[in-house]
Simulated assay, not measured.
Amino acid sequence: MEDLIKAAFNGVDLTEEEWQFIKDRIALQHFKKGDILLKEKDEVLTQYYVIEGCLRSFFIDTHEREHTLQFAIHDWWISDYTAYFDASTAILTIECIQDTTVLELSRITQKEVFEKIPKVESFFRDKLEHSFGAFQLRIINNLSKTAKEKYLDFLTSHKQIEKHIKNYHIASYLGITTESLSRIRRELAKQ
Results as ranks from 00 to 15, higher is better:
145 K>E: 15
70 Q>V: 03
131 S>A: 14
103 L>W: 02
14 L>K: 05
131 S>Y: 14
3 D>V: 15
79 S>G: 06
168 Y>M: 01
135 F>S: 12
93 T>P: 03
60 I>T: 14
88 S>A: 09
92 L>C: 05
180 S>L: 07
33 K>A: 10
163 K>H: 15
13 D>A: 03
105 L>D: 00
65 R>S: 07
115 E>P: 06
119 K>Q: 11
104 E>V: 12
144 S>P: 04
88 S>M: 13
81 Y>S: 01
21 F>S: 06
111 K>M: 12
176 I>Y: 01
37 L>S: 02
98 Q>H: 11
147 A>S: 10
26 I>E: 00
21 F>L: 04
183 R>C: 09
171 A>H: 05
29 Q>C: 08
38 L>T: 02
133 G>E: 13
135 F>Q: 13
143 L>K: 10
161 I>S: 02
51 I>D: 02
30 H>S: 07
89 T>F: 11
184 I>G: 06
47 Q>L: 06
19 W>K: 07
72 A>C: 04
154 F>V: 00
101 T>D: 07
1 M>W: 09
3 D>I: 12
183 R>L: 15
149 E>I: 12
164 H>Q: 13
162 E>L: 05
95 E>Q: 08
4 L>Y: 08
42 D>R: 06
142 N>H: 11
150 K>Q: 12
66 E>H: 01
46 T>L: 03
183 R>E: 04
66 E>I: 02
73 I>E: 07
19 W>D: 09
70 Q>F: 08
